[in-house]
Design a protein around this nucleic acid. Structure first.
Lengths: 253, 253
DNA sequence: CCGCGGCACTTGTCATGAGAAGTTCAATCA
DNA sequence: TGATTGAACTTCTCATGACAAGTGCCGCGG
């Protein structure tokens, strides 16, 4: 394991455990170098990573300080409805409306990088929080991944979690957010009037190898779930903006 | 200006301009070193930054490749409509419908932490991209900040930029995203049918001292603007989740 | 007692050099 | 023809050394 990862993990653990409380100064770079028997390079690489994670704050001439504890829930909460709901102390529910293996519509096939005649596995589920219908989920999986869905009951719980457990690589994702009017199925399942505004999150999930494996269209009742983003300018000026507005491709330049 | 920033800016510009199209290979590190008269250090620092921004992809043994056009150059693009539109190479426009100093509705006053009788400055503007109506913005500023709005023409350009220039501290923000049906004003100004689904972004901006200074309700035509979020699990499992789903307060536990 | 200068220490930036590990591609062999 | 090997690339990692620039603090002088 690379030295800079070792250093970053060690410091992260010291922060998580409370050994380095919030606001506390970190050892200087030279001290860390000595502690880990590394030169300044790897140490600075580790500190840069931690700064990007928002864990520490650095500035010239001043020893780095601890900004906050790492959050208990992971980014998985953003991929998995079940994980999110559970993390907020409520009860997730799901009711499968459809589970099938068939040729997807052209626009879905394009997003999954499939040939026109390739089949994919589609799952349509109504998700609920504490028994209240909250979201309607339409997911398409490439066959290779999707066939595993027949191994277990999608009414059981998290598909995301089940796939991860079975060794499927679900690594990165792009989420696109907009609003749509509820169609007949949406309205019926979410128990809202036809054409009600719904928050839509489209998700493209890729494996570690970069292969697109899932396309999902999730529609939320906005009175039961929203999205929130928190960010600050100064500390993130150098950090990566994981969020951005997006202009649709369809717009003429 | 630091060398690695110069290098990063140059490459970013070459991507933005299309000189380096999507999927194209970047020059190798040694070539870049030669081009900029820099050693490998700053070049690698620049590439790391671009990788963090999701602009390029790197892996051992392979030349870096262009992943996509920049979604956002900086966090500022997320706060400022003008900055965002300009960064994507298009022309922002604004038409002010109202600029007034008056007592805000109770729910707005609460968000700004104002007393019931305190006044605030309200601005309603229709924002456009390349002349097309795209977003309707309703912003409320606390008086202390809002009075500066009368110093310049809000039709001129970015309020955000103008306030920053005048030394106003706009440091952090919380964005809440949902969907709403277009009301009469929305429909008229955005040129969509009544009750069309719109993407709404509510923004609470705070100064460095933590004081809430702005509340905004921005409503987008979803055919002209969306939100995108890119994230990966492994590298971000520990990375800060600057994004989270949010359950509304109104929900009974 | 207060203010100020200067020194020690810090991080930020950059150069140079080197080996490990992965990728690409063309020549070679079955 | 198809698989394999190897060399020439690449990036990743790390060490060392150096200077610039910012911070904190102690002690001196007022």
């Amino acid at each position: 394991m690379p030295l800079h990862v070792v250093v970053a993990d060690a410091i992260r653990e010291r922060i998580r455990s409370g050994d380095l409380p919030v606001g506390a100064p970190l050892p200087s770079e030279s001290e860390l170098s000595a502690q880990f028997g590394a030169s300044r390079g790897p140490v600075r690489q580790a500190l840069g990573q931690l700064r990007n994670e928002g864990l520490i704050e650095t500035s010239q001439g001043r020893v780095p300080t601890v900004l906050g504890r790492p959050l208990a829930h992971s980014i998985d909460d953003f991929f998995s409805f079940s994980a999110w709901v559970q993390a907020t102390g409520r009860l997730p529910g799901q009711h499968t409306l459809e589970l099938a293996w068939r040729v997807p519509p052209a626009e879905v096939a394009a997003k999954l990088h499939l040939a026109a005649s390739d089949r994919a596995v589609v799952v349509v589920r109504r998700r609920s929080i504490d028994g209240r219908p909250t979201m309607l989920e339409r997911s398409w999986y490439v066959s290779e991944v999707g066939r595993r869905l027949f191994d277990f009951d999608p009414d059981e719980g998290s598909i995301f979690g089940a796939l991860i457990e079975r060794g499927v690589s679900l690594e990165s994702g792009t989420h696109t957010i907009d609003a749509v009017a509820a169609n007949v199925l949406d309205a019926e399942q979410l128990e809202v009037p036809l054409a009600s505004p719904l928050l839509r999150v489209e998700r493209l999930t890729s494996s570690a190898s970069g292969r697109v494996v899932e396309y999902a269209d999730d529609r939320y009742r906005t009175d039961r779930a929203k999205l929130a983003i928190r960010n600050s300018r100064s500390t993130s000026a150098v950090s990566r903006p994981s969020i951005a507005r997006l202009a649709p491709e369809g717009l003429p330049a």
